[in-house]
Each structure stands twice: as C-alpha cells, then as structure tokens.
Deep mutational scan, measured.
Amino acid sequence: DTFTFTLDGIEVRLHGASEELIKTIEELLKRDIRWEELEKWIREWEK
C-alpha cells in the first residue's frame, strides 16, 4: 500500500507504510506540523 499526503506543498508517498505509522502521521498533520518536524520524526521512527 502507498500512503500519499501533501505537506508544505510537497507530495509525499510512503510505500509499505504500516497502519500504525499512517495513523501517527495523520495525527501529526492535524497539528499543522512542518516538514522539518515530520522528517525528523520519520528518521526516529526508522531506528
């Protein structure tokens, strides 16, 4: 599955994202998160 969203005018596609990761990103997007914050968060998630 591919999860697609737009952040700061950039279309982002995550391939093979888990349901948990998708739900977490959706929550972060509701908080009007900035790209830099999401990028940092995703790097931490990957560890």
Rank of each mutant, 00 (worst) to 15 (best):
D8N: 06
R13D: 08
E39Q: 14
G9H: 02
F3S: 00
L38I: 05
R34Y: 04
A17V: 13
E26N: 12
E27I: 10
K40S: 10
K47V: 13
F3W: 10
L21S: 04
E39T: 09
H15G: 05
V12M: 06
R43S: 09
E39L: 15
L7D: 01
V12T: 02
S18W: 03
L38F: 15
I22N: 01
T2P: 12
H15P: 09
R13C: 15
W41H: 11
K30L: 12
I10D: 02
I10K: 08
D1T: 11
L14Q: 00
L29A: 02
S18P: 08
W45N: 05
D1G: 14
I25W: 01
E39A: 10
E37W: 09
D8W: 05
K23N: 12
R34A: 08
I42L: 14
R43V: 09
I42A: 03
L21R: 03
R13L: 09
W35V: 05
K30E: 08
W35G: 03
E26V: 14
F5R: 01
W41A: 09
I42E: 00
F5W: 02
R13Y: 14
L38G: 01
D1L: 15
I10R: 07
F5K: 01
E20H: 10
H15A: 07
I10W: 04
W45S: 03
K47P: 11
W45P: 01
K47T: 13
W41G: 02
E39W: 15
E11F: 05
I10S: 02
E27W: 12
K23H: 11
K30P: 02
R43E: 05
I10Y: 10
G16T: 05
D32F: 10
I25F: 03
T2F: 08
F5G: 01
K47S: 12
E19W: 14
W35K: 04
E27P: 02
T6R: 04
D1E: 13
D8P: 01
G16F: 08
E27H: 08
E11A: 04
T4A: 07
E27M: 15
I22M: 06
T24F: 13
L38A: 03
R34W: 04
R31Y: 12
W45T: 03
E39G: 06
F3H: 02
L7I: 15
I10M: 09
E44M: 08
A17T: 03
G9W: 03
F5V: 04
S18A: 06
E44C: 12
K30A: 12
I33W: 07
E36C: 08
T24I: 12
I10A: 03
T2Q: 05
V12W: 06
I25Q: 00
T24P: 01
G9V: 04
L14T: 01
D1K: 13
R13F: 13
I42G: 01
E27Q: 11
I25S: 00
T6Q: 08
L21P: 00
H15Y: 15
T24V: 11
E36G: 08
L29K: 02
K30G: 05
L28D: 00
L29T: 02
T6D: 05
R31G: 13
E27S: 10
E46W: 15
R13V: 15
L28Q: 04
E27F: 12
E20M: 12
F3Q: 00
R34T: 13
L28H: 05
K47F: 12
E44V: 07
R31H: 11
F3Y: 15
H15S: 12
L28T: 03
K40N: 08
I10P: 00
K47H: 14
D1Q: 13
D8M: 05
E19G: 10
E26A: 09
I25C: 03
K23A: 13
T24Y: 09
G16E: 05
H15W: 12
I22L: 05
G16W: 08
K40F: 09
F5P: 01
K40Q: 11
E37L: 06
K23G: 08
E19R: 11
R31S: 14
I42S: 01
W45Y: 12
S18R: 04
D8L: 05
E39F: 15
R43W: 09
L28P: 00
L38P: 00
L29P: 00
R43P: 03
F3M: 02
E27D: 11
I22T: 04
I25K: 00
F5Q: 00
L7T: 02
E44I: 08
T4V: 13
I42T: 02
A17E: 02
E11Q: 06
V12R: 03
I33M: 07
T2R: 04
D8I: 02
W45K: 03
L38E: 00
R43M: 10
L21N: 04
K47L: 14
R13Q: 15
I42Q: 01
E36T: 13
E39M: 15
R34S: 12
T6G: 02
L38N: 00
D32R: 06
I22Q: 06
I33A: 09
L7W: 11
A17Y: 06
G9D: 06
W35E: 01
I42P: 00
E46K: 07
L21A: 10
L28N: 02
R13E: 15
L14Y: 03
R31F: 12
E44T: 05
E36S: 13
I33L: 07
L38Y: 11
R31V: 07
E39Y: 15
E26I: 14
E27N: 11
L29C: 02
E20L: 12
D8T: 02
I42H: 01
F3E: 00
G16V: 05
S18D: 09
E20A: 13
E36Q: 12
K30N: 09
R13M: 14
D8C: 06
E26P: 02
A17P: 07
W41I: 12
E20D: 10
R31W: 11
T6K: 04
E19Q: 13
E46R: 06
L38D: 00
L28I: 07
E44D: 11
F3I: 03
E26H: 11
S18G: 06
K30V: 09
E19L: 15
H15R: 07
W35S: 03
T24W: 13
K40R: 12
I22E: 02
E20I: 10
F3A: 01
D32A: 10
K23E: 09
E19Y: 14
T2L: 09
L7R: 02
L21Q: 09
R43L: 10
G9C: 05
R34I: 08
E46G: 12
T2A: 07
F3K: 01
G9Q: 03
A17M: 07
E37M: 08
E46M: 15
R34G: 09
L29D: 01
D1S: 11
H15I: 15
K23Q: 13
W41K: 08
E44S: 11
E27K: 10
S18T: 14
E19A: 14
L28K: 06
F5I: 05
H15C: 10
